[in-house]
Amino acid sequence: MTMDLQSCVTIEKEWDIVKARQLGREVAQKAGFGTVDQARIATAISELARNIYLYTDGGKLCFEIIDNVEQKGISMLSVDNGPGIEDISQVMEDGYSTSGGLGAGLPGVKRLVDQFDIQSEKGKGTEIRAVKWVR
């Protein structure tokens, strides 16, 4: 399996959300995704980046193209050292929000991608890995 160099965006300011989704879209285009999947990927990244911006003191989003014999895709990794998520099944429910948002972010990301893993430890932070495959 060969992997391109990883590209990361540190999320500190609000504009970093835009930077992350623009870079993600570029990587997705390079990986060969069509326009609809590019939009899905950019949207998923926007949700993950905004959550870092809103709920943590900082974190980053990293992308890489996965290119192996059978499949090509993009991996998106969101890492923060924020407060962590205590009840993961709760935040994965549509409509659950602690910020007056739509609560569509995390359950939405899960539907936008093909693989979704979330790991979180209270007081330590959260790590979310999402993968989308080129069809």
Binding site: V36, R40, T43, L102, G108, R111, L112
Partner: peptide, 14 residues
């Protein structure tokens, strides 16, 4: 609203 945007909105449940 672009087709790709309509698709992602539905995925988001909006």
């Amino acid at each position: 609203i672009q087709p790709a945007v309509a698709v992602t909105l539905i995925d988001l449940g909006i």
